[in-house]
Each structure stands twice: as C-alpha cells, then as structure tokens.
Simulated assay, not measured.
Amino acid sequence: MTTVMFACRKNAGRSQMAAALMAHIAPHLRVMSGGTTPGREVHPQAREALAQIGLTPFSEQPQALTPDRVKEADWVITMGCGETCPVFPGKYYEDWPVEDPADQPIEKVALIRDDIERRVRDLLARIEREVPTGAVDN
C-alpha cells in the first residue's frame, strides 16, 4: 500500500487539510501527517474550512514528524518545514509553496484549502500513474 506523509511546521493547518483531503479522496492509500514543531491544537480556521466541505481534521491532535514516520512513507509532501524535514533515500519528496492558514480569515483559509485540494488531486493522479517528480538519491 502506498503511504503519503504530509508535513508542515505545526501540523495544525496545511498538513492537516492535505491529509484529510487525501484520506477522503483516496481511501485506498495510507495517509499520515506531522509537524516539525507540532502545535497544541489544529487551527480553528482549518477546522472550519474542512467543515465547509464536510470533512474534519486528519487528527484531533497535531503529531510530530519523526524520522521513523518519514521512513514509513513512500511520498513526503512538505509545506513550509524546509530543511528541518528528515530526508531518506528512495522516497519521493515535494515541497508545496502553500500559504500558512494560521491567523487568516476563513475566506482566505478556504482558498488555501482549495489550493491544497488541487495539489492533492494532482498528486493522486501521479501516484496512480506511478509518475513521480523524482526520488531523492543519496
């Protein structure tokens, strides 16, 4: 089973929305999410933006992005955690330039959610065609 890890700094917004969307759209994939410095809770705006489309955050409590969890993933999608995300050979890595929804008005967070959904659907199409953008070779 293909495993996709979504990561951001706090695991309170972007990665929560991405993981919730992927889990909903592609229940045949294993989905995980995490943050390099997990927040205390999922951003209320991210909760509301997901609720607008009938979804809930991927996890109730932000999770840590650990090397062991990254090792489990086939695809690692980062959003704003930069070089603090662990990198392992043989994994497919992408960094999505997605704006942080923290402290944004719900209208802006809904646009961020929609951007993430487009990216998730594109990623899923590539996973299903097995056409990655490139594995990290070390």
Rank of each mutant, 00 (worst) to 15 (best):
M1N: 12
T2E: 09
T2F: 10
V4A: 06
M5S: 04
F6Y: 08
N11K: 07
N11H: 07
A12K: 00
M17V: 11
A20G: 06
L21V: 02
A23W: 02
H24K: 12
I25N: 04
P27D: 09
H28D: 15
M32V: 05
T37E: 14
G39Q: 09
E41A: 12
V42L: 01
V42E: 01
H43M: 06
R47I: 10
R47V: 08
E48K: 10
E48W: 07
L50Q: 01
Q52F: 10
T56L: 04
E60C: 00
Q61Y: 00
Q61N: 06
P67W: 07
D68A: 15
V70A: 13
E72K: 14
D74K: 07
D74C: 08
E83K: 15
V87P: 10
V87C: 14
P89H: 11
K91S: 09
D100H: 09
D100W: 06
A102Y: 05
A102H: 09
I106D: 04
K108W: 02
A110H: 02
L111H: 06
I116P: 00
I116L: 02
R118Q: 13
R118S: 11
R119K: 15
R121M: 12
L124I: 14
I127H: 06
V131G: 09
P132E: 09
T133Q: 13
V136D: 08
D137A: 14
N138V: 14
